[in-house]
Amino acid sequence: MNTLRPGDAILTDWREAATRFEREIAKAVVGQERAIRLVTIAIFARGHVMLEGDVGVGKTTLLRAVARALGGAYERVEGTVDMMPTDLIYHTYLGEDGRPRVEPGPVLRQAQDLSVFFFNEINRARPQVHALLLRIMAERSVAAFNREYHFPNLQVFADRNRVEREETFELPAAARDRFLMEIGMEAPRNAEARRALVFDPRFHDTDRLTEEVGAGVLDHDRIGAIASAIQHSVRAEPAIEAYVVGLWEALVRPAAAGIRLSGLDMERLIQGGASPRGVAFLVRAARVRAWLEGRDWLVPEDIRAVFPEVMAHRVFLEPVYEMRRAEIVPELIRAVFDTVPAP
């Protein structure tokens, strides 16, 4: 039973489209198969994505390639310290006649058609901007020019680099919780990809590189409907439900689940987080992964494949451990998967 039922021919077609989409992206971004797969999952789960990584590993290139392959209107802003929420919504300038003009800003310019909103260096923007973004992400709507704007197809991609801490603003927990995934990107490890990235002139011109990606591989207007069809068609058995709840419990209360990590006080490690919304997101992403793998039922591997990206940023550690988050959380997640039985 490794194929979908014939009645789901549309889903099968779309799965092929998704594979094509991944192939197109891989033309521009080499050695990032996992990141590409996760972004694809996020697209079909209708979730917002945060990319995180060092400078120059290809975050922006990946997002530009995705935006191109996805089709639909695309807007991009760069986060800066002096950016204000109104800068996103309104564009103010002096017209040729010397009169001040107010026109729709980056968010509104493409009106309802906007499908990819790309926020570069999000942690450079101030909390006021994060708050606006929170609303756009959560409700896919914004109020401006005395009316409501709705963006039914909107997907927010953001990136931040984790090297600098000066003049940056940590995203509030509520905003981070709105992101479906936080994907960590690293430079590819395999030597061939590295050589190509450094020596092949093709990779030096990002503009030409992204143009190689086939435009509009996916019909962005219909992704919403397909996403919902995927969620309805992929089954979750009681065993998998118990597994997810077990993982959730072990993540929030690791001491009670019998998890011990060296040098950490497990009783006091976790402050909170792992919201029900987060776990719902987890299942949503896992369902998309099952569909991409050609199944219409969930298996534990689906959960495991998306767990770190979906859950890691939703776990809040005690302040003493927060600075060591990057090493503690992956270890905790690994221990959780080593502990919770499946089936």
Partner: peptide, 19 residues
Amino acid sequence: FLVLHRALDATAGRRLLAD
């Protein structure tokens, strides 16, 4: 099946999934 799963888990020292 569960018996065999648990025996495999115990041998591996962690929970073993099909993959």
